[in-house]
């Protein structure tokens, strides 16, 4: 779309776009192109020699059990994080929408975790759940749970899911609350007059009307769990124990920087690009068309 009234200038628009396009070219397109290029080569750690190997890097990945483990870890992690953050955000929004007194206090209490950096969120939670220092961990151990996220993979996964979901509750809360407040009161009242109690109104009126918000949030939460939680994992578990929290993004980082395996890291980058493209297309196409306020 463009304005009906426009300015006539041949060069000015290019000058205006210049800074943005220059940064995009240098820091986005060039590196992305390079990742694609390098995914077809086998290079030594110093980049001195490169041998064209075709799709071998991809083949290596697709036969490596480690990569499948990482895919599984990512799916479990993002699935659980999305589910936990969406449900908590939704429940809190439903109640906050109904509350009259102290709304600002409740809103503030629920919104602030958005401002906490993922790595700091990880620090706060590992402190509560650290097997030797953590006080919640102390309680769990006193109750007879053999709690140790440093050695037990499932415990480590629980810990990073809790930290990641906790941070994302705020976002979901804000959007669900905005969605709830946009529902016309007359619809809710009509349902009430027809004899629907709070539970039935929620199930048959509110949830269907919120479906566009919900689907939008599902995609946003998955993207968040995939890409924005690197800090939590890096600071808290370092992908361990024994790869139990080694997500795809974390693996690209460790393969590229710690193992210096450029080809494998680039091939993984390319696969991740396809995942992001799929998620973006989903967000812009599928969701806008299939879900509507009917």
């Amino acid at each position: 779309m463009i304005k009906r009234v426009t300015f006539a200038s041949k060069s000015l628009p290019y000058l205006l776009l210049g800074p943005q396009l220059l940064i995009l070219a240098v820091f986005f397109f060039w590196p992305a192109g390079k990742a694609i290029y390098e995914s077809f080569f086998l290079s030594d750690p110093f980049g001195a020699t490169q041998i064209f190997v075709g799709l071998e890097n991809f083949q290596m990945l697709l036969v490596s059990p480690e990569y499948y483990d990482s895919i599984l870890v990512t799916l479990v992690f993002s699935g659980l994080t999305t589910l936990a953050a969406l449900l908590s955000g939704f429940v809190m929004a439903v109640f906050a929408d109904r509350a009259i007194r102290g709304v600002l206090v409740f809103k503030s209490a629920l919104i602030w975790p958005y401002a906490v950096a993922p790595a700091v969120a990880g620090a706060l939670w590992i402190f509560l759940f650290h097997p030797t220092f953590g006080s919640v961990a102390g309680l769990l151990i006193a109750l007879g749970v053999d709690w140790d996220p440093l050695l037990n993979g499932a415990h480590a996964m629980t810990l990073v899911v809790v930290a990641a979901a906790w941070k994302q509750i705020s976002y979901n809360f804000v959007f669900f609350l905005a969605g709830l407040q946009a529902i016309p009161k007359s619809l809710i009242e009509a349902a009430a007059i027809d004899g629907a109690g709070p539970g039935k109104r929620l199930w048959y009126v509110v949830i269907p009307l919120l479906s566009p918000t919900t689907f939008f949030l599902i995609v946003i939460n998955i993207v968040y769990a995939f890409f924005d939680t690197f800090g939590i994992i890096h600071a808290v578990t370092g992908g361990g124990p024994a790869g139990a929290t080694n997500t795809l993004v974390f693996k690209v980082y460790t393969d590229g920087f710690e193992n210096q395996d450029l080809g494998a890291s680039s091939a993984q980058s390319v696969i991740l690009m396809f995942i992001v493209i799929a998620l973006t297309v989903l967000q812009f196409r599928y969701i806008e068309r299939r879900v509507s306020y009917a």
């Binding site: 000015l12 290019y14 992305a32 990742a35 390098e38 690209v252 890291s265 991740l272 493209i277 973006t280």
Partner: peptide
Amino acid sequence: YFRFRFRMTAFWLIFITLMLPVEVRIVP
């Protein structure tokens, strides 16, 4: 506010970057 030849190209170039977070192109 301007009509110019590569307007849509520029628009799409900017749009595509939504799909290229740092996390997918770390090493390069």
